[in-house]
Design a protein around this nucleic acid. Structure first.
Lengths: 249, 249
DNA sequence: CATGCGCTCCGAACAGTGTTCGTTACGAAC
DNA sequence: GTTCGTAACGAACACTGTTCGGAGCGCATG
């Protein structure tokens, strides 16, 4: 009983002893959990990131994970922040200084954020509920604020704009990764578009005249074109809309 | 044991006739499932809408639901469309005709949509993945297109704008209902704001200068003010942004 | 009238899920 | 050499969505 050779388990550098006879294994840590979870996320999507599966990847039991993480949501929040850390951030100069090309840089940043978060199979959806406060998410917010300061808009507008940009990034990434997930289930983008076209073809022209008339247009334009236009819309809108639109002080 | 007076269930244990001794019970139907699910949604949130719980509310077994609905996702899609049906739609005139006050009406419509969907404890999140094609969702899209046609913008822009508005409605409603859910768990809005303030208070001013400097501003403005500003931003942006921004044809 | 067919109904079971309990074993302090 | 905090889990709990197969009803056909 003291030294069965098969199935080495955790933490027993000294080989002879006892139940944990793992020979050499990285110690568990929150970071290790996040890495394991991220690998599973990339391989099989958000739903596959279960406590048991993460534990299995680390060659341990699910109960062990709760030493490093309060629950699954907390683990996912950590994974989210790790992914946010992969978004390339431009460096913005010191606080008061003018920021050259702030608009082009902000446009790129928003696009990159959507691409990075949208590529990771549903992780963006964990940020829709609660405002993320991980270090990387904060750094992203800081950078957005820095770029916005280059536009010379007031603080309140910047605060509102930050929220709006975050909302857009999260929502667009969520939508995009849902698309990707469907694609991996065999449905290609063309078949998806075709199915949508069929749905609209069946519509009564008297009940939905606009939708029917616009059927060809509704599927026009690539996803990238739509995204680029949307970001332009947000920035143009932000630049031309003062807070408190009804009453002017 | 053969005939306890209380709690008549389906499938009489000992009543004279056969197994189904339902005395007087509305026949099952997809609509009945949706109503039951909606009641549970309002009472206990999206996670509480389980097949067993819906079945229990209808005094039947979970397996019976699958006669009317392919799976839980389909049921939730039906619930979603029912809720969308509660959004008051302005009536837009005939197709070619000018639409008076289109902007004010569109503003109201978007706000109403967010309010209705956001009030329903997480149901908005089911629409983030797939484009909803229920009759009420189509009617909403049709109305939005009708109002947008009042602005005299081209078809492609209208198509992009429809997507953007839908994205905003869904994301904003999801976020709002997440807030509401937290509120019901004892956390008030003030305590939430206070917690956020504390988080920001702890931040290093050298690492996050903008965030620290803007701390008072970040929690300023009511939710309604922010929402109203955001809708203005979207409309202003839509009106001033042509498709294909880089190259001009 | 009898027979059979199709449909609804639903108990039981399957393969999972997140999380908790209680026990075990280890490394370090005393 | 003994104690002790804590990491590590095996097992269990209370659930989940979904499937299977049998049971029973009503209706059209023979």
């Amino acid at each position: 009983m003291s030294n069965p050779p098969g199935a080495p388990r955790r933490s027993a550098p000294a080989a002879p002893v006892s139940r944990r006879t793992r020979p050499a294994k990285a110690a568990l840590s929150a970071d290790a959990l996040v890495s394991a979870a991220l690998a599973i996320l990339d391989a099989d999507g958000l739903d596959a990131v279960t406590m048991r599966r993460v534990a299995q990847a680390l060659d341990t039991g699910a109960a062990s994970l709760y030493v490093y993480v309060a629950n699954r949501d907390e683990l996912l929040a950590l994974v989210y922040d790790r992914v946010v850390g992969e978004i390339p951030l431009p460096d913005v100069g010191p606080v008061g200084a003018p920021v050259p090309h702030w608009r082009a840089r902000l446009t790129t940043l928003i696009g990159d954020a959507v691409t990075v978060l949208g590529g990771r199979r549903g992780i963006a959806s964990v940020a829709l509920g609660d405002v993320p406060t991980g270090p990387n998410a904060l750094a992203l917010a800081e950078t957005i604020l820095g770029l916005l300061s280059g536009a010379g808009i007031d603080d309140l507008t910047r605060s509102f704009a930050l929220d709006l940009i975050n909302l857009y990034i999260t929502a667009a990434a969520t939508e995009q990764s849902a698309y990707v997930a469907k694609g991996e289930q065999g449905r290609t983008e063309e078949s998806e578009v075709a199915a949508m076209n069929e749905t609209f073809a069946r519509l009564s022209a008297t009940e939905y005249p606009h939708l029917v008339a616009m059927r060809p247009t509704l599927t026009e334009g690539s996803g990238d074109e739509r995204d680029a236009w949307t970001i332009e819309v947000l920035l143009n809108g932000i630049l031309t809309t003062p807070p408190h639109p009804p009453r002017t002080p």
